[in-house]
């Protein structure tokens, strides 16, 4: 019987130049439910499908705030994600303490990239079994980054990871040109529409299984830029958004910023 001799650890290359443990970790990401992220000129949003193990259990959290200007969406092992999210939280707090500013999102993502890479090159270690979408704003504006267990990180305008995420990505590719100029609500609707593409047959977006996270930049009264802190919306807070992208309303809902969900 065939046995793969090159996947016992993450430090051995296969003759084809592959590191199987890292590839398996990437598979773990595909087991997680789908998450979508999109960035515009003013906002970055994350939307996610939450799963419950059984009817009676609660839904697994998919979105985590990191700092006031950053949040993450996860696909894969939740417990691995918590290690990374705690690390990111500490880095952001430390940076704020030392410099009195929001940590630049790219530096933050670079840090978890380096951290994850170490696990792919040391004997006895295991790569993180989780992929992240990192949404944040800094002096440069909104950002969206993808993070993979290999330690790869890349800045994206829109992306989706997790189970059946290819369909969501196809939607995002089709509508890519619109995102940059989208407002807050429009961006969320695009995210939810992309999410719907990835749903299995007979499943729908509900207030129980949908999470939305938003971060953005606006102008303060004195003309300086002000951060709209990263906030996760769950339950009834996402109802209006879900309704607005419901199939029957699709045609009726014209573009525009008429919906008010945020109470701030």
């Amino acid at each position: 019987m065939f046995r793969n001799n090159y996947d016992n650890d993450s430090v051995t290359f296969s003759p084809q130049g592959r590191i199987f443990q890292v590839e398996y970790a990437a598979e773990a990401v595909k087991q997680g439910s789908v998450v979508v992220g999109i960035a515009s000129k003013t906002h970055a949003v994350l939307v996610a499908i939450k799963r419950n193990a059984e009817e009676l259990s609660s839904y697994q959290k998919k979105l985590f705030p990191i700092d006031e200007h950053t949040g993450i969406a996860i696909a894969g092992l939740t417990s691995d994600a918590r290690v990374l999210s705690n690390f990111m939280k500490q880095q952001c707090l430390g940076h704020r303490l030392s410099y009195g500013r929001n940590m630049p999102v790219r530096s933050l993502v670079d840090q978890i990239g380096s951290k994850a890479q170490i696990n792919t090159q040391h004997y006895g270690k295991r790569p993180y079994g989780v992929g992240l979408l990192v949404a944040g704003v800094d002096e440069q504006g909104p950002h969206l980054f993808e993070f993979q267990p290999s330690g790869m990180t890349e800045e994206m305008q829109a992306f989706a990871i997790g189970a059946r995420s290819q369909m969501a990505r196809t939607y995002l590719e089709k509508n890519l040109s619109e995102f940059a100029s989208c407002g807050r609500e429009e961006l969320v609707r695009h995210g939810l529409k992309a999410l719907k593409e990835s749903l299995v047959q007979d499943r729908e977006l509900t207030v129980e299984n949908t999470s939305v996270g938003i971060v953005g930049v606006g102008k303060a009264k004195d003309g300086s830029t002000k951060v709209e802190p990263f906030k996760v919306y769950d339950g009834q807070d996402v109802n209006a958004w879900i309704d607005s992208v419901a199939d029957d309303k699709e045609a009726a809902t014209a573009e525009g910023e008429t919906m008010e969900v945020d109470d701030e």
Binding site: D138, L144, E155
Partner: peptide, 18 residues
């Protein structure tokens, strides 16, 4: 400059100078 700096409000302003 990052790819998003092209679509950000202030393109190529520099990445968070202190």
């Amino acid at each position: 400059p990052s790819p998003s700096s092209l679509l950000s409000a202030s393109p190529n302003k520099g990445h968070g100078k202190l």
